[in-house]
Design a binder for these strands. Structure first.
Length: 263
DNA sequence: CGTCCAGGTCTAC
DNA sequence: GGTAGACCTGGACGC
């Protein structure tokens, strides 16, 4: 895949990520030669995007004893993410109460109009909080066509740009300093973030306790499971996974995505 | 054409 | 604490 990532105190860079040998990722930086600082910045972004740091072995230990999920232990479970938590939160808000095509339209407009061009001009980075905060209401309404989400996005961007809200810190805080319940409460306080979005964001920052329950996962669970089930019943089924319940649920639902590519 | 609703959330009871 | 209605948008669908 090709993504454009931010680089501290420099233009964004567009990188091509491919599968290398020995399970490694091979990263090519497009455009002008990248110095040491740029390489380090790009590497940090790629690590976050691919979630390379996370140790999922506790999940695999439980999954090994669950016939429905034993297949994941080869190394499944790393959800692709944005380069920043801010990006993940914005995109998640853009998935709420609309079709996937609408999500693509909104996010595409943000990047195309507010995102900084990468060195070499190969792509645009996801817009910074400052850029999104500076965009007028009209942009969200008439260009992004974000509807009522426009106000949420501007408000969120302004809080982050103004320094009152540090979303990036949420990804590095340990469960000891910030328990899942507190994190969930904090996220639910963000504009446009409800139970679905909070669970989704938490999954992306390595807090997998919450199940993402929405109009896609509920029927998908019924399909995979063979029969319908209420939210409480679904949560019971994955309770054995404790802090990994949400990820176990997600993998249970998306097995067909993985089997396709693994054969 | 009108209605419904999609990877929900917010407010007001 | 649980629930009803409103909410932008635009595709899908029935008429």
């Amino acid at each position: 895949m090709t993504v454009t990532v931010p680089v501290a105190r420099a233009r964004p860079r567009t990188v091509r990520i491919r599968e290398g040998r020995k399970g490694r990722a091979k990263v090519d930086v497009l455009g002008p030669p990248a110095g040491a600082r740029t390489q380090a910045g790009v590497a940090a972004s790629v690590r976050r995007i691919l979630n390379l740091e996370e140790d999922l072995s506790p999940l695999y230990e439980v999954a090994a004893g669950d016939p429905g999920l034993a297949w994941i232990v080869f190394g499944a479970g790393r959800m692709a993410r944005g380069a920043t938590v801010f990006e993940d939160v914005v995109k998640t808000i853009c998935t709420t109460n609309c079709t996937w095509s609408a999500t693509e339209r909104m996010v595409g407009a943000l990047v195309a109009n507010l995102g900084e061009l990468s060195a070499g001009g190969h792509g645009r980075a996801f817009p910074t909080p400052a850029a999104m905060a500076a965009a007028p209401e009209r942009f969200y309404r008439e260009v992004a066509r974000a509807g009522y989400r426009g106000a949420y996005l501007r408000q969120l961007a302004a809080s982050v740009a103004g320094g009152e809200l540090d979303l990036e810190a949420l990804a590095t805080a340990s469960p000891d300093e910030l328990p899942d319940d507190d994190l969930a409460k904090l996220l639910l306080g963000l504009p446009g973030v409800g139970p679905y979005a909070a669970a989704h964001i938490m999954m992306l920052i390595g807090r997998h306790s919450r199940l993402i329950l929405d109009s896609w996962t509920r029927p998908k669970y019924a399909q995979v499971n063979g029969r319908k089930a209420g939210d409480r019943q679904i949560e019971r089924r994955f309770r054995r996974y404790g802090p990994y319940a949400g990820l176990a649920f997600w993998l249970y639902l998306t097995r067909d995505w993985v089997e396709e590519s693994r054969g």
